[in-house]
Nucleic acid binder design. Structure first.
Lengths: 147, 147
DNA sequence: ATATTTGCAAAAGGTTTGCAAGACG
DNA sequence: CGTCTTGCAAACCTTTTGCAAATAT
């Protein structure tokens, strides 16, 4: 992501285009994997000289709120963040080994929502769907190791 | 769940059938909704006289590990627990209002796994699927209020 | 100029741990 | 009786907050 493009997104959100925000965005775009707040912090700290962890949290919250980035569910109860190019309804295939994320659109839950509604009488409002596994590369590496 | 039945489950897991464990299990069976550790604690505290919150956590961990209970994902980063009668592969329809849980089996993800594997070259190992909304009762109540 | 943003230190809050005392089988 | 459990207090660790100083527009 160009610096200018990041600034544009921020202004559209009514946020000032500060170096800290631009670095956070650039960091998340640069990675093809999800990161925790402190991982983002450690990466951009080097380049910014100094930035507080609370600031990173504040920025990540703003961006997640604005749906510029996505929170990833994790069993360790930590928050992870990922920049998705895709703004349509979609889900993530998350690699358990390298944490890379691949989007996929098909979720087939529209039909399921109808089934649940008619069988239970309730109303479906949202859903969480995340597929975990090994990406192509890690899958290959693992089978080589096994040999 | 009968007390004796709970004891049987515990013994099969190689765990001693202590009053604390039995109460935790009975509490979760009695509720048709998911509970946080401290909610379980507050409920069984009354009957046990005294029990520490760490003990509740330890018991919930053991039971979740053994898949006797399920952890529920929540946006507030707290852990919630629910006893599922159903041991087959299934998912939960969670009511956002009263937190009641309804199982459903259909998830249609077998096909999706294949699609992801063939399009990305990766391997699907697991998935998280949870549907949120309003159960029949809460859905009804809400529309009454709206009137 | 002024509202927004940030750093710092400290608090919050859920969860975990260490260890001695107690209970189950 | 020996091993598994539990209570208690304290630690942990991620995330949040308060407020004064700095910065973007």
């Amino acid at each position: 992501m160009e610096r200018e493009q990041g600034a544009l997104i921020l202004r559209r959100l009514g946020l000032k285009a500060t170096p800290r925000r631009l670095e956070v965005m650039q960091c998340l775009v640069g990675e093809r994997m999800y990161l925790s707040a402190d991982e983002v912090w450690n990466r951009i700290r080097v380049r910014l000289g100094s930035i507080g962890l609370p600031t990173v949290y504040r920025i990540l919250d703003e961006l997640a709120e604005a749906r510029v980035i996505t929170r990833i569910f994790s069993a360790d109860r930590k928050q992870y963040f990922f920049m998705c190019a895709n703004q349509e309804h979609h889900h993530h295939f998350v690699c358990d080994s390298c944490r890379r994320v691949v989007d996929f659109a098909q979720c087939g839950l529209e039909g399921l929502a109808g089934e649940i509604a008619s069988s239970t009488g309730g109303r479906v409002l949202s859903h969480i769907l995340q597929v975990n596994g090994l990406c192509a590369e890690c899958s290959r590496t693992e089978s080589e190791v096994a040999r």
